[in-house]
Design a protein around this nucleic acid. Structure first.
Lengths: 209, 209
DNA sequence: GCGGATATACTACTTTAGTTGTAATTTTAA
DNA sequence: TTAAAATTACAACTAAAGTAGTATATCCGC
């Protein structure tokens, strides 16, 4: 829908992304570590619209790279999405304060990442003004419509491997009702099916316990 | 299949388990913290076959409770399964060395937990001899048949939200082949469907990245 | 080179899941 | 006390997933 955007992926194992993103109309370039990433970003003829930055990398890790990029006046406003592993994000994610615009947790759901990319590109095309740090709260909920309590309840059961029928029985409602709820959930989370919803739910910690 | 076993659940939020286990023929009793758990376990007329012990609990946490149970000569051999949250298990799980027989990660897959319970009950019914600490490696792979590399590859893709068709295209095989593989995977992991497989995979860290 | 495991593939199903659109009750908040 | 959410529900689908049994290359180790 949007114009073709050029994305710089800084990740030592970006094969999956490099394969996937072009299918959705993005032009991608890969750097396998922070140093190479900055080199590509600052090269004469280059012009990237967004950076995908993996936290775990050899030589120069994601946080250092992020700092280095933001220190360059020319790139203080470029949208950056951090990619973190499921275990490290807890404390480290506070690093968002240092200039990332959003983050996704690995293994991530492609439609979710795509939605985030598009949201950031859209945002940065209106507001060409100065980069403002988003606060954590916003990012956590970011781009995701809030679920109602019933929806959370159902998503939680799905996340325990329950079938629609299982859920219907336990909640004393009809299976069609469960399906209706699930459809709303899928739409809100921008995912295609229950597997993706579960993965996203775990990543976003929508389901606690 | 096995005789009716009595299980003590020590968990401050055991509603789900308390609802689910009786459906599979287990008799359950609940203690909402470690102190109460030990009281129930050591009560005159009680006789439990297995203990499910949550790590996160008020008053006396799971590890303390585990130690306390094992210190009692009468219970040094009772099968204990620890229930840990996905974030804490990394370092803490070394606590297995102090006497737990197995562990599951929350949110867990019921069929997986059931398989572990049954395996432990089976084991403890043959070998009435002294409790021997299992080593971590065994527990990690424990009760799960190893997946072939192709199976792991497919499971990983499923864990990124891919459909059977997506997988078939990327691996240049037919969708039926993917289904065949998935069926083997489900049987090996003792799960019913892809959602449960993904959850189990994440918990067991079968898929890395 | 033989046997076993692995990977592929098929038929012919059955069963779940997911979609679209519509709509009646409750709740809840302004 | 209304207007807006939220929850429940249905029909009538289509699509995807999962099952069961069988079968053929191929690779790998001994």
């Amino acid at each position: 829908m949007v114009a073709i955007a050029k994305i710089l992926i800084i990740d030592d194992n970006a094969k999956y992304l490099a394969d996937a993103l072009p299918l959705y109309g993005y032009e991608v370039e890969i750097a396998k570590d922070g140093l190479q990433g900055i080199k590509k970003l600052t090269a004469e003829n280059s012009s990237f619209d967004l950076v995908l930055l993996d936290v775990m990398m050899p030589n120069m890790d994601g946080w250092e790279t992020l700092k280095a990029i933001r220190q360059n006046k020319k790139f203080e406003n470029i949208p950056i999405i951090m990619i973190t592993a499921i275990n490290e994000e807890q404390k480290e994610i506070s690093g968002l304060k240092f200039g990332a615009d959003d983050y996704v947790v690995k293994p991530f759901i492609l439609p979710n990442l795509l939605a985030r990319i598009e949201a950031l590109l859209r945002r940065s095309s209106w507001q060409k003004e100065k980069h403002t740090n988003v606060d954590l709260k916003f990012v956590k909920e970011g781009n995701i419509e809030p679920l109602t309590s019933r929806e959370k309840e159902i998503l939680k059961m799905v996340s325990q491997g329950a079938s629609n029928n299982d859920i219907a029985e336990k909640l004393y409602v009809r299976e069609v009702t469960v399906k209706t709820h699930l459809n709303s959930i899928f739409k809100k989370l921008k995912v295609k099916n229950r597997t993706q919803a579960v993965l996203l739910a775990m990543q976003m910690r929508i389901i606690e316990d």
